[in-house]
Structure formats: structure tokens, C-alpha cells
Design a binder for these strands. Structure first.
Length: 203
DNA sequence: CTCCTGAAGG
DNA sequence: CCTTCAGGAG
């Protein structure tokens, strides 16, 4: 749920969702439609589909040693789970941490470079504490716009003190008249219950 | 590299 | 109007 979705929105949706699907077995048995419906308006409904697929795999074969074997789970998610659940000494580089390490370096970094830098910059912290400290630093201090460099503990070693050349510029395509808008209507209809396809055109 | 979602805040 | 959001897959 946290993939490209703000924490506050996930936090609001989480209780109801986890109550509906308390474990992988329940989710696997519920079927993809039920999971997508319960996903609500969190966006990227593909994630709901993959979550159900992962539940099916876990129910059938148990948890894999490598979490990235599960659909929808990449290096980031596997690392975040390991660091927080098991306090493993790894860093999962999210958009916030990426921004921090690139500004300190003064240039864009490869994913591996960013990871190595984050591990080092975590200082005396490790595991869960280091991951969360770096995330919060990026989110609250090393912000995309108007960074608070005067409050940053890493300012002395920072190169850019602001956006680096080539820093992320996500421009969102127009929503009105888009396929995305149309799909949103379809999903809203399906969440509401079975409906004739023709009813969708009425909107 | 591109695509994928919806909502909140600037 | 614009940007941003604890990414993953093709």
C-alpha cells in the first residue's frame, strides 16, 4: 500500500483492510475481485491484484526465503521488511532517502551507490533505527522543495544543500478524458457491485 | 526507459 | 494550475 502512496492515506485504509484479510489464507480464498474491491481508492489497483497473487503463493508454498520472489515485492519492500521486522542491518532506499544521499553527494546515484551511501551516513544507528531516521530526515528536513538545511545534522558533509541536477520531476498526465479516468469509473462500478457494462458508458 | 493510481497540499 | 507520495514490472 505504501508504494507511491502517502502514509496518511494508507494509515486510514489499513485497519479495515487488515480486518477483512487478517492472513494470507483468508485473502487467497477471497479471490482477486474481493481484494481489489477492498483496496478502495488507494490507487494503483494492480498492487491489490499482486497482493492477492502473493497470498496465493504463500498459502500454497509458505513464505519464501527471498521475499522478492513474491509478486509485487522488489528490493525495496524486502529490505524494509527485513530492517523493521527483523532489525536487519540493511537500508531500503525510498524516494526520501534517495534524495538525501544524492544531495549530499551532489549528483545522481545508482541504486547500489545510494544504498551504500545510506548505510554509511546512518552513522552509529543500525537496522530499524537507521532506516526510519533517514526516511524521516528526507521527509521532514531534506524536503523536495524548501529544504531545512539549517536543521540538518548532515549539512556539514552536504554538497548540494538543495536539489541536484536531474532530480526527480514527475509530471502527471492530464486526468480529464484519460484512460485512467475511465478505468477509475469502471473500478468504482465494480466496487459498488455487479453492473451491466453499458451502464459504464452512461457516465 | 515507460507505465501505472488517486488524493492532498502548495 | 502544479508537485508529491515508504515502488515494481515490462
Amino acid at each position: 500500500m505504501l508504494h507511491q502512496t502517502q502514509v496518511s492515506r494508507v494509515a486510514a485504509a489499513w485497519p479495515g483492510f487488515i480486518a477483512r484479510f487478517p492472513d494470507p489464507g483468508v485473502m487467497a480464498a477471497a479471490g482477486p475481485g474481493a481484494v481489489i474491491a477492498a483496496w478502495g481508492r488507494l490507487g494503483y489497483p494492480r498492487r491489490a491484484r499482486r497482493l492477492w497473487e502473493a497470498a496465493v503463493v504463500i498459502t500454497a508454498r509458505g513464505w519464501p526465503d527471498d521475499l522478492t520472489d513474491l509478486p509485487g515485492v522488489g528490493r525495496y519492500t524486502a529490505g524494509a521488511v527485513s530492517a523493521q521486522a527483523d532489525d536487519a542491518d540493511v537500508v531500503a532506499v525510498d524516494v526520501n532517502i534517495r534524495r538525501v544521499v544524492e544531495r549530499i553527494a551532489g549528483r545522481r546515484l545508482t541504486p547500489r551507490e545510494a544504498e551504500a551511501s545510506a548505510l554509511e551516513l546512518g552513522g552509529p544507528l543500525g537496522g530499524r533505527d537507521r532506516l526510519l531516521a533517514l526516511m524521516d530526515l528526507g521527509s521532514l528536513v531534506c524536503r523536495p522543495r524548501d529544504p531545512r538545511c539549517d536543521e540538518c545534522p548532515l549539512a556539514p558533509q552536504c554538497t548540494a544543500h538543495g536539489p541536484v541536477n536531474g532530480e526527480r520531476r514527475t509530471r502527471q498526465a492530464r486526468f480529464e478524458g484519460s484512460f485512467r479516468q475511465r478505468r477509475g469509473r469502471v473500478l468504482a462500478q465494480l466496487r459498488a457491485g455487479p453492473a451491466a457494462a453499458g451502464a459504464l458508458d452512461a457516465d
